[in-house]
Write a protein that binds this DNA or RNA. Structure first.
Lengths: 350, 350
DNA sequence: TTGGCTTCCGTAAACGTTTACGATACTATG
DNA sequence: CATAGTATCGTAAACGTTTACGGAAGCCAA
């Protein structure tokens, strides 16, 4: 026991070879024992497992991946330096948590592939994916035209997207039901007598902006109303963006009486900006937004759409695995392209 | 040209071998050409580079890492499902952005190692690190007693921590200057006449809670004051935690007249809870906190401590690389254990 | 012409695993 | 006792790179 610790201390434990000769067993048997293969004596397996534990041996990732042709890693691509949701780690961390409960069952590891804001996302993906870094990819923050879809499809890398794009290549996707949100919001506001309704959308090419605006427009049309071009506010998806919207909106002569916010974080800045401009949220302007950790602490409480991000993560993972040959038998074919419903949580802001 | 594309389409581009025989050059020369080694004809190199580009060849990560003994990947460990700062992706995304500007210069990739909330962080680290997944590690959310430090030190993995711990093993670290924040906050509040001051700290074993409380206590003592045990509020580091604090605090008969918040997100819930309890922030209770994307949109504007997260990320990366033999020549020895200063941004809340 | 340099390139051996295959010893069956 | 079958293990060949080493030219000076 003492020499074992000494051996570990000295860091002599290089690889499976040292472990094998320490046990006086062939390297092949050690590998089989560790990997739970059937043709190995149970007592031998126990010895190997114990030795590996006490010597702190863990199979080298590169060697294993090289031989097996799979890394056991799924990558979730995100861009740093930019604010995707403006909502906080809570958003992605919750999704991740759901994803991992599924992955854990298959000894898969989830890592976030962090694309620098200074590198082209397509180049990054090409680099990291072609390198065989991950066995599968999850894409988020999808854009109207997203070349990443075609790239992954061409390389035949299993992937799923959290969000849609015009460049759909038949891959599985999950997306929040912005159509449903738009329709329910407009219907609700119209039923409450609003006819002059504004909306927000991201300032950039995020796909959800188009989906949302189109559906808002369609639903308004169903009510015989139309969306004033000047009432479509483009902003960064964060608090500052909301503040900016408040300033623009309150300066309008034909001010809308209601607004639907597509992003979570906007509400915080919007509230502040409105108050400063003498426009009282909920009384002078009806507001419907997206639920976030902050939204329920706004005053008046934000009427918002909520969803279980953890469940979304679970569905995301299961759907992805369903498309990967090695796991497909566990996850029978589900609808591979799915709109994720959101529930309206009434507050005091509309 | 046409057959090149066809070849890429057919996905025949397996590895460097195919690339080599397509060029009718030896595999060794191709490798040298791609890696910028000196002993290769410039015209040959150009041919190789062009072919690699047009055929979409990228060196396989596993093979390369196996041979070189290095992965070119640095891991930033974080736990999912839990809220570290409660502040949002903005916090880590900004830090990441700084880290990456440094890493990009050395063709290093940053990935976030996501530890599930259901797995023990130490086990996770052991698994992922011993596997040789990353060449270096960045640890955050350090705990009072953090076994991860010893683990990495024993394995001789280069690492740096964003945060301190009692289990310091002499590794480099960066940490926010909570001592400075505590001192400046208390001094400021005392100068404004407050004698009954409360503080917050995380509900769990995060190291910063101890550092912060100790310094607050010391500074108060310097002023001849003491910290009432019932005025040390433990909470989750998010909005809900702040709300809870507001409820507890406003129910106290001996209510403090000022409070210093160690976490960012707390302020949002605190404000709301105070208002509901009829306690007006800034008038009935002086508040000093940490700057966040939301803090400046609170009303009254939060007096808070700010810092450049991007610069912090840069320092983090440079210090880490300074300890790695392969890069140390670029980053001469800096102070490897450094308190990162924060600046007080006066608001209206104190 | 010879010898030594330089430039360029091919050969082959690693790197640490996993796994197909074959070998051995033992058990059961006739 | 012979044979087939089973349980267990060792051997060696991959996986895709990088790189130490050596060899083949070409050049220049003596």
């Amino acid at each position: 026991m003492a020499d074992r610790e000494a051996q570990e201390e000295r860091g002599k434990m290089k690889g499976i070879r040292e472990l094998a000769e320490h046990l006086d067993i062939s390297i092949g048997t050690v590998s089989r024992a560790l990997n739970g293969k059937p043709d190995v004596n149970e007592e031998t397996r126990k010895r190997v497992l114990e030795a590996a534990e006490s010597l702190g041996y863990v199979a080298n990732q590169s060697g294993r991946a090289l031989r097996k042709g799979a890394t056991g890693v799924i990558g979730f691509m995100m861009q740093t330096g930019t604010e995707i949701t403006g909502q906080g780690d809570t958003f992605f961390m919750s999704v991740f948590d759901g994803v991992q409960t599924v992955f854990a069952r298959h000894k898969l590891d989830l890592v976030a592939l962090l694309c620098s804001s200074e590198e082209d996302p397509n180049d990054y993906l090409k680099r990291v994916v072609a390198r065989g870094f991950a066995d599968g990819i999850i894409l988020s923050a999808t854009r109207r035209h997203d070349a990443r879809f075609e790239l992954l499809a061409k390389r035949k890398i299993p992937f799923i997207t959290l969000g849609r794009s015009l460049t759909d290549v038949g891959q599985p996707w999950l997306d929040l039901d912005f159509e449903g949100m738009a329709e329910a919001s407009i219907d609700r506001l119209v039923a409450r007598g609003h006819t002059n309704i504004a909306i927000t959308r991201p300032h950039d090419d995020m796909n959800l902006g188009y989906v949302f605006e189109d559906q808002c427009r369609a639903t308004l049309a169903r009510h015989g109303l139309r969306l004033d071009e000047r009432h479509v506010f483009r902003s960064t998806p964060n608090e500052a963006g909301g503040y900016q919207i408040a300033r623009e909106l309150s300066a309008l002569q034909n001010r809308p009486t209601a607004i639907v916010l597509i992003n979570e974080a906007i509400a915080v800045g919007l509230y502040r900006g409105l108050v400063e401009a003498g426009v009282k949220p909920g009384r002078d302007l009806a507001i419907i937004g997206r639920q976030s950790p902050q939204s329920e602490f706004l005053s008046p409480r934000l009427t918002s759409f909520s969803l279980s991000l953890r469940d979304l993560g679970i569905a995301l993972a299961e759907t992805l695995l369903g498309t990967m040959p090695a796991f497909a038998h566990v996850y029978p074919a589900k609808p591979a392209q799915l709109l994720w419903p959101m529930a309206l949580v009434p507050g005091e802001s509309d």
